[in-house]
Design a protein around this nucleic acid. Structure first.
Lengths: 334, 334
DNA sequence: CTGAAAGCGCTTACAG
DNA sequence: CTGAAAGCGCTTACAG
């Protein structure tokens, strides 16, 4: 008992496959009586169109590819959700791939996705590999880069300035009277940009260059280790900016473990505005990223373009905000 | 400049499309010299096969569908990772869909996936909707249910007993001398099973029936609210089992906020063994679920079956363990 | 080891 | 409003 084809539906409804196809994709063009008969036949047979055949014939796959660095415990989950909401409204399906923070993985994943004929591609991050940029440009489909900004996107970029976020956090630490600072983060490009923005503000304020402590993975335990390392290398440190909240939570816990007063002796800040950041005590100062909106806007750009609209603004800066909380300010704690 | 087809590669390599196809899928059957010429042509043109056409002709999509309740801040992320590792090794691609904990969403998602002709389907949870079960059975492809157990899976189930997990946690509370207990969780089936197992053990031990506190969403703030509600309704409660760690973290924080001694006055436990559970102070007693292994095994079952092996054991119980930590035992706290 | 023929299940113009 | 013809880009037997 193999699956019914469009021909089986047509036979049962006493019409042609073309009409069945129309009922599915442009029901307004079919007479109501015919439409009803076809709908009944579809229902009766449990017909589900073969989308491989449909894609091949129509050259429209209905797929939007989304490339994320990781799906794990994800700061990107909200972006995926936003994308999913936006493209779902447009009748498109999301094909998700994670390249695990590796450029080789990114290339392999793009190739795998291309084979599925996506109508558009959304990438978390700005694509840095030159060969990959050229390849994506050659695809002649909308490509949206996200979670960062660049003067020269492949097509469109929807994000915020990681460098500006780092800079803003540096100013906040200075405002709090902290000058001997450290930065904790991975080697991925966005973390590096945050570090650069952070360091630049400190330099121009005449503060010491921040200690840069590198992490291998993103996790609470890794954040604790990083804080330990920072205090070993630079015991006088009075503030630490972590590239993500998960690391910062580890930093906070290590302080608690060592009975280091936060923020009096050591101020702590993160990025991402996870729910846990708000709920901890002391609550965590963090950079709020419009993660959902980034996904939503990226999805809308894609949907608009696929509906035939011309390319609009190439650079959409959705900004960020510093959420000042107890881990950097000396307000009384509950 | 449209994308090159297999015919273009064949022309450049001075051979036929059939041979190009062979180089891609069974290179051992092609003479080395020919293979080299074809490989060079593929490279030169940047040829990527159209997988819609390939799927249609071969009736093999190379796709495994994975249905999860949510991709958000996910207790399921490890399962997805395990699946991805296992099916990736077999050259299959994962098509991920989240049905947002709704049966209607589950049905719609299955229909959307079926259109893409997946060779197998993996579902987080046991499918409860009878019509959907019949439909999946009729598909004649491997279907793996996960994260729970049932006597009569559609095909194969890989998981653990949620009821037994609830029961084990009830025994642990009793061992700790706690008898006036509460359960906090959502209305999804797995949470209900945990509650039932929990309640059954208490009943047979002659302890009072546990208060069941329902939550709308999974979040730290929701866990705090739930704990507040429990203490309002039953101030004498001396232990609370939360259906997931995220809720339990909220419970722990609310206790901290109210200066309720944990575990002396109130013991707290969760399920999932998130990293934060280990790191908090007091650390959180929890049920460890082999989430990665569930995904990995499910993926292996699928890969084995698609490689032609007959169906093996229908029920794979991967078990769970109670991780006893400070939130239920009165050991000294750092 | 290699290729000509047929076909996978749809949709796109086009005609009426 | 409806349908016959052609074709989307591959792969599957089959033959040699």
């Amino acid at each position: 008992m193999s699956r019914p084809r469009i021909e089986d539906v047509a036979a049962l409804a006493g019409t042609s496959p073309i009409t069945v196809s129309r009922v599915l994709r442009a029901p307004g063009k079919v007479a109501p009586a015919t439409r009803a008969r076809v709908a009944a036949a579809i229902e009766q047979l449990g017909y589900i169109p073969n989308l491989s055949a449909s894609s091949l014939a129509s050259r429209r796959s209905g797929i939007v590819g989304l490339l994320v660095p990781t799906i794990d415990n994800s700061i990107f989950a909200a972006t995926v959700q936003g994308m999913s909401d936006a493209v779902g409204d447009a009748g498109l399906q999301l094909l998700l791939g994670d390249f695990r923070y590796s450029e080789a993985g990114e290339r392999a994943l793009v190739r795998a996705l291309i084979g599925r004929q996506p109508e558009a591609l959304v990438v978390v991050g700005v694509v840095r590999d030159a060969a990959l940029r050229r390849m994506l440009q050659g695809l002649a489909i909308p490509v949206v880069e996200t979670w960062d900004l660049t003067d020269d996107p492949i097509d469109t970029v929807v994000g915020f300035s990681n460098e500006a976020a780092g800079a803003a956090m540096a100013r906040h630490f200075l405002d709090c009277g902290k000058r001997r600072l450290a930065f904790v983060g991975g080697l991925d490009h966005r973390a590096q940009l945050r570090r650069q923005g952070f360091a630049a503000v400190l330099a121009s304020a005449g503060a010491p260059a921040p200690l840069a402590q590198e992490v291998e993975t993103i996790g609470i335990a890794e954040g604790r280790r990083a804080l330990t390392a920072v205090l070993e290398k630079a015991p006088e440190t009075d503030g630490v900016f972590f590239a993500t909240d998960v690391l910062a939570v580890g930093g906070l816990m290590e302080c608690q473990h060592r009975a280091i007063p936060v923020p009096e002796r050591l101020a702590i800040a993160g990025l991402g505005d996870l729910e846990i950041a708000r709920e901890l005590s002391p609550s965590l100062t963090t950079v709020r990223i419009p993660a959902y909106e980034i996904g939503r806007r990226a999805g809308e750009v894609v949907a608009t373009r696929l509906a035939g609209a011309p390319a609009g603004e190439r650079i959409l800066d959705l900004g960020f905000s510093i959420e000042v909380r107890e881990s950097t300010t000396s307000r009384s704690r509950a």
